[in-house]
């Protein structure tokens, strides 16, 4: 029997579906139900939930950028916080496969020329053993184009909101993307500051536009 990646429950598909090649899902029904899919009216730039569809005040106030839009899959609720913490900080690489199918679908919709991971600084990469952004891309069966590098700096998650919004550039181009549309895939979208810095560095690499897919949308 296949086991849920997050608990002890079994996961099975109906035998007739398995016969046609259906695979058992990575999570049981209970764990799947603990995640909250983003739906309803939202900001068409950053996926933030809004009273009605439109553009949120944060996105209106961002300076001009080649950053086009972000699509987030889930609310950053308690269950999602736990799973992302286990994936990224505990280093449970296999959890990337939970999101593989949905990322593949969204990536197809985004229809970009290249898919670029958000790089980690060398010391952080050594500490974590893998880059969570690259893991999400690879587990979704997509090809990662490493177009950027990152200098050593403080952890983004330890910073306050104001500090994040005014963060200095730590990304730099290492590849060539002249005229290309680039898709960036990452775990969490909070203020959008990281994504815009990534987009700036990609602009330096020649990119024409940048979209992003993130697992969770945090912040109110």
């Amino acid at each position: 029997m296949n086991r849920c990646l997050l608990c002890e429950n079994g996961t099975e598909v109906d035998s007739w579906r398995a016969f046609f090649g259906a695979k058992a899902p990575p999570l049981c029904e209970v764990c799947t139900a603990s995640f909250n899919r983003l739906s309803g009216p939202c900001c068409h730039v950053c996926s933030r939930s809004l009273e009605e569809d439109g553009e949120c005040t944060d996105c209106q106030s961002w300076r001009k950028s080649i950053f086009h839009s972000n699509v987030s899959l889930f609310h950053y609720n308690e269950a999602m916080q736990d799973v992302i913490a286990q994936f990224k900080y505990r280093g449970d690489y296999v959890l990337a496969s939970i999101f593989a199918e949905k990322i593949r679908t969204e990536a197809k919709k985004a229809a970009c020329d290249l898919i670029c991971p958000v790089p980690l600084a060398p010391s952080r990469l050594a500490e974590r053993r893998f880059n969570q952004s690259e893991a999400l891309i690879v587990c979704a069966g997509l090809t990662a184009a490493p177009l950027l590098g990152r200098h050593e700096s403080e952890k983004q998650s330890k910073k306050s909101r104001a500090e994040r919004m005014n963060a200095v550039q730590t990304f730099y181009p290492t590849g060539e993307a002249t005229g290309k549309s680039v898709l960036v895939i990452d775990d969490i979208y909070t203020t959008g500051a990281t994504m815009r810095l990534v987009a700036d560095a990609l602009a330096d690499a020649g990119a024409a536009s940048v979209k992003s897919i993130t697992i969770a949308r945090s912040g109110s």
């Binding site: 505990r90 280093g91 449970d92 690489y93 974590r128 053993r129 893998f130």
Partner: peptide, 26 residues
Amino acid sequence: FSSHPCARCGKECLYCRNCIKMGKIS
């Protein structure tokens, strides 16, 4: 167990999922 390409040792590296909540053993 599960595995991934490891940035520390440069190989496909096996890790234990059973006790990962206490810190990863690869």
